[in-house]
Write a protein that binds this DNA or RNA. Structure first.
Lengths: 126, 126
DNA sequence: AATAGTGTTATATTCATCATATAACAGCAA
DNA sequence: TTGCTGTTATATGATGAATATAACACTATT
């Protein structure tokens, strides 16, 4: 369990936590079928409130990264609903690429950066 | 001036406005040296408060997309400080690519998507 | 000199969200 | 029964978003 929370960041704690868990899934730190710590447990580990963790878990459930039952808590179970996700990815990329274009970062540099991130982070590929 | 603000979005108005202007610069809708509308003028056009526009302009100034003087208001003047920007782009891409990886969107599909966005949006390339 | 247009600053208010706290409930397993 | 899950309810303090009114400093035009 490596979850880094920056208490000085202006990003909401529950969003940082959600993003860190998504990163954990992509890097196979959390495997399909594995349970995440309970909301109370993880709250104690990080040192934040139970409800903040619960908010992150609820969001992860809505977005289709985990499924929840009362026996095992939040279980990694990615449902690959590409239709919804691809539109979200497109919107995010549109803004990110607009920024880079304004700053004279080339299209080729973006392609290189994508490959660098994939290789350095070791994102799982089917 | 095509600026679309979604009043039902959960994204803050001043951030939407800032992103739309960055998109406008990247698509050469706003050219280097051109002035943006005054804060009061744009506020009237969109139908929001002057301070909300001012907040977006101040942020754009801090991020190096415009420079401001009292004669001509907010003038498009991109300073290409790549060092700072590249780190920001990397952080944003890390999370976006983690999401897509979880949803079984392949690396090749991302590369294709990047090219699609560049071509469809017509982002300026040096 | 006067007027009108810039961005900027100050102050205040309303509203929503974030993060916290305490408490209880329903379901499952040992 | 006991102890662990997620879930819900309610409340509170802090922060930020968006608004409103007002004024200030500077510049260009009349």
């Amino acid at each position: 369990m490596f979850i880094e929370i920056d208490f000085n960041s202006d990003e909401a704690l529950y969003l940082q936590l959600r993003n860190q868990i998504i990163l954990g899934i992509a890097t196979d730190q959390f495997h399909e079928g594995e349970s995440l710590p309970s909301v109370r447990n993880l709250a104690d580990i990080i040192g934040i409130n139970m409800h903040t963790v619960n908010k992150a878990y609820t969001l992860l459930k809505q977005e289709g990264y985990v499924k929840v039952d009362r026996r095992n808590g939040a279980v990694i179970a990615v449902d690959a609903n590409q239709a919804l996700t691809l539109e979200e990815i497109r919107r995010e990329l549109q803004v990110t690429l607009a920024k880079s274009s304004c700053k004279n970062i080339t299209r080729e540099e973006i392609h290189t950066l994508v490959d660098e991130i994939y290789d350095q982070m070791g994102y799982r590929e089917i």
